[in-house]
Design a protein around this nucleic acid. Sequence first.
DNA 1: ATACATGCAAACTATTTGCAAAAGA
DNA 2: TCTTTTGCAAATAGTTTGCATGTAT
Lengths: 152, 152
Amino acid sequence: MNSENVYDQSIAILKKNKVRITPQRQIILKYLINHHNHPSVETIYEALANDFSNLSMATVYNTLRLLEDLNIIIQLPNKDGGVRFDFFGEPHFHAICENCGKITDIKYPKYSQLDQELRDITSQQDPGFKPTKSKIEVYGLCKDCQAKLNHK
Amino acid sequence: MNSENVYDQSIAILKKNKVRITPQRQIILKYLINHHNHPSVETIYEALANDFSNLSMATVYNTLRLLEDLNIIIQLPNKDGGVRFDFFGEPHFHAICENCGKITDIKYPKYSQLDQELRDITSQQDPGFKPTKSKIEVYGLCKDCQAKLNHK
DNA sequence: ATACATGCAAACTATTTGCAAAAGA
DNA sequence: TCTTTTGCAAATAGTTTGCATGTAT
């Protein structure tokens, strides 16, 4: 699926949920679709504020929460405070370096299958719980940090 | 494994890493082993400050970070700011309600197997990355919140 | 003995909030 | 039109830090 389709599909989700398509929401959504750098709120704000004056942090926060609630993006923990975001088009999980905080996308062909299994088990053990999504993270040390830490 | 063994085993990990066994660390660790309420920093502080005067928030923060770094406890996201913690004796994952933030432990017999698979895939796709742990969360709506939201 | 840990309070920073003005539908 | 959204600035809350004191080993 190309990024145009992905964008249109996301906009459709917004419309279905009766939220207004504002320019701010459009550029933030586009930014997230086109950048796979797992940006923080501030990274997004700084990248867009130049071309789009009068963009406020509050709006970035609002939009990100909205997109996350609609399962268009997911939130990732950030090593030193704050959070980061990732457009969640193709299901994948994340490898996170415990030393530098670097986040890498890990594609997993069997993700949907695993997701279904996790939901089933959850519903079994917590009757009545209605799962909407699952999130997986693998923590460890990235290549660079291993090298750095060995030199000490 | 009973809670005495779990405690001794955790203390052994602390000793192996040459951190001092202070009374503060002991009572915080014991609290986490004996309470499966996924406490916040403040919950832990308030529960212990009564019997242990002069306990400071800073020490609770320090200790929790230490225990997390040593993979004795894991950190969980909290709905409205802050984080929560869980002693990670038997591997399990968590069901988190998106509406009220309630966290439930979900036991998964095949967890170690899945954990191994996730690590392998991560190492394959991010050569050089050295995994230390994985974390899985299933988000959704708990039974109570579904009922509440339907009444609206 | 001495390096490490603690307690306190102040500092910091990410995030939220209230409200008037702006603008989608 | 009229409800939702935005921008701004102030407020809030979670977490960290600096340093003198205390303590585990």
